[in-house]
Structure formats: C-alpha cells, structure tokens
Design a protein around this nucleic acid. Structure first.
Lengths: 206, 206
DNA sequence: TGTACATCAGTGAACGCGCGTTCACTGATGTAC
DNA sequence: TGTACATCAGTGAACGCGCGTTCACTGATGTAC
C-alpha cells in the first residue's frame, strides 16, 4: 500500500498483482475474479485493462513473478553445489518447501492455476530456469553414483520434485481435511533422506 | 446411457454423477457446473434437486464413489500382504497410479475439488478405509526393518502417498504444459524402488 | 512563470451471459379396490 | 379389468447475482514554447 493519489493510483499494476495473489491463495485459482482484485486495489474493473490484457494475463503475471522468485531462491540454495553436492541438494529441497510456505499465492498460480508454461516466451524461460536448478543439482549429485547404477538425472530430479510437490499439496496446505500427522518439513526431509540413501548417496547406517 | 422414457428419466441420479465426472475431468472441479451436468444428462437444472441437495452435494457424491472404488482397488492390490509384504506394497503403489489413470474424474473430485473429507460421516468412513490400506501396507512392510531404524508407519505411508500424488499431478496429467520426460508408471515405480532401498527393504545391488 | 495541448490512467454505465436455486405446475407411474 | 387417486420425477419460468469485457468519457499529469 503506497500513497494514493486520488484519481491516479500510482502503481496499480503492482497493487493488482498483489491483490490477485492474496485472492488466489484464499479462494483458489478459479475462485479468483478480476473484479474482486480490482475492488481490493480500490479501482474499477475496467481499470485493469490499462495494465493487463484480461483475467488470464493477470494470473500469468502472478505466476511469472512466482517463477522468478522461485528460481532465485533455488539458485541461492544450490550455491553452485558448495560445499558439497549433497548438502547443496538438501538445501534445494528445503528451499522448495520454504517457497511453497512463504509464497502460497505464487505457488498456486504456478502449479494449480492451469496456465500453460508455454503461454509466453518469458514465462517459459523463467520456468525452465527454475526447474533447471533442480535438475542441475540432481546431475551434480548423481556423479557420485557408480555409472552403471546411476539413474538419469532427469528422473532423479523428477522424483524429488514429485515428492516435494506431493508433500506440499497433501500436507502443507490442508486440502481435503487431511490432518497432517507430521510437520511437512520433517516429512520432506526424511523422505528425501531415505531416497538419497536408496541411491547410495548417504551411508546406510546414519 | 440407458433407455430414455420420455418424461421420466429412469436413472437420473446415476446419469448426473457420470456427467459430473466427465465434466470435472475436462474442466476441473471449479469449472464444473450443475447446469451443464443437467444438460448433459438431458434434463432441466431444476431436476437435479430431486436427487441432490445442490452442486456441492453432487461433487461430494462423485468423490464418495471414487473413494469407494479406490479403497476396493487398494485392498485388492494389497491382498492381505500375500505373498510377501514387499510385493504387496509395490502392487499397492501401482494400483494408486492405475486408479488415477483410469478414473481421472473421480481422482480430481477426491483430491482437487476442495470438498472436505469430513463433509459427511460416510465420506469420512470410506476415505479412512482407503487410506488405511496404504497405512496397513506400510506397517506390515516396516516390520522387516530393525526396530531402532524403523520410521513410523504413518510417515512411511505419507512419503509414498506424497510421491504418488506428486507423480500424478505433475506428470500423469499434463498440468502446466509439462512434457513428462518419462512415463509416469516408470517414474513412480523407480521412485518407490529407490525409496524402499533406502529403507533397506531391497538389496542394495539389485 | 504561464499557458496550450497531448497523453495517460482512471471512471461509470452498459452489455450479454451463465450460474445456482426456488416455485408452482404437470405428466407419468404405481396401487387399492 | 377398470377406475380413482396418491405419489413421484420431471418442467419451465423466474429470481438475483457477479462475472469479464467494451466504450465513450474525463480528470490528472507532463511537456513544449
């Protein structure tokens, strides 16, 4: 909320995205309406069209910003694979969940709104960047596995992504009245730990 | 589609649930409308109210039937843990994915429609039964792990559920324009395999 | 500094639409005698 | 078998609602001279 200047808003575009994120978080991606976002930003629905092509375009922008943050967080967590591929990888896993927790609106816009990653070149680029970090982390880490028993890095990272996403959807947001038996952080950390042990990347008796 | 009898439909209730499932599958749980389901069944929207309390109630019934099928499938796959806890467990994992593939409308109604599992006692009961099978399978299997290194069975089954759900959401239905690098069946099977190896339930060199 | 004017970013009324739900109704079916 | 009547399962019109989008408009801002 920055200073209102009466007739002219000042940064409507930003305000609309923020309003959209809150609404998407609260009501889900399809419960979200352009009109309500406009109202929240203190503006007529028609004003939205000065900044976005329409409802879809607004959601896409929210998702794009999400991927941007997401990619940055993942990259920061990965930290070039230092000090070791293993700890870097575990940091990335935690960063995934932290992102979902901290930016639920973005997360929903990105993964549940049904907008296609191919919608615009920019969206595609930033999404690729984000998921690329995960894949890179998996690639580096899998160098430590004997070559004949090494799964493809893409498969490796798909497993981790699936487990992370599953934990988020089922246990981090109380979707179908599910009461989580464990904190999602623990669930994800132990799950990834067991998985990595299965790959022989962690000693079996730790 | 059974024989139409003019003014009286004959089995409207069934027809409505079927129509709802198709629509939910195609348009998502919030894109689904009562009116369109009625139209698909060849009937006025008002007729729906002879059989259901309203829109929500219709979705809940679709979900309930889904849990019923789901629970049966899981139980059949588990088969009392025969011939071994391990193979039974792997069958259950595959059954999960098979269900999501074969009954996508049900799956979405169950896990993405936002209806609470607590909505009615029957819904709660059947959902508990379904997820109970998974937990039972996990419990039996974890008997083979030395007690001091054995994770709680609830955590074990939560991991498997999360991975399965994640694979379904991200790779089995092309949600955000994601082109899956691998068939979801392979992804889930290898993922669970690695996880079980991490628990010491599969020999490390197989 | 003042003024004329172009540009920008809003308004507000209107549109057509499909939604979920209600209501009094009526046609079809089943049953008692 | 026929008839009277109750019950059931539909109709169709109507409701109020909020939606996304368009349009001509106008108030505010920025700029050239």
């Amino acid at each position: 909320m920055v200073k209102k200047r009466g007739y002219h808003h000042g940064n409507l575009r930003t305000a609309l995205v923020e309003a959209a994120l809150v609404l998407i978080e609260q009501k889900g991606p399809t419960g979200f309406t352009l009109s309500e976002a406009a109202k929240t930003a203190g503006v007529t629905p028609a004003a939205v069209y000065r900044h976005f092509e329409g409802r879809e375009d607004l959601i896409a922008e929210a998702a794009r910003q999400g991927y941007e943050i997401f990619a940055d967080l993942m990259e920061y967590a990965f930290n070039g694979g230092k000090p070791s591929a293993l700890t870097a990888f575990e940091r990335v896993g935690r960063a995934y969940l932290a992102f979902a927790n901290k930016y639920p609106g973005h997360y929903v816009a990105m993964f549940e709104s049904g907008i296609s990653i191919q919608r615009t070149p920019e969206l595609n680029a930033v999404a690729t960047r984000a998921l690329g970090v995960l894949e890179r982390a998996a690639t580096e880490l899998s160098q430590h596995i004997p070559e004949d028993r090494r799964p493809p890095a893409q498969m490796f990272s798909a497993h981790i992504w699936a487990m992370s996403h599953g934990v988020v959807e089922l246990f981090a947001r109380g979707s179908p009245g599910t009461k989580s038996p464990f904190p999602p952080e623990d669930l994800l950390e132990t799950g990834i730990g067991i998985y990595l042990r299965g790959l022989g990347l962690i000693k079996p008796d730790t």
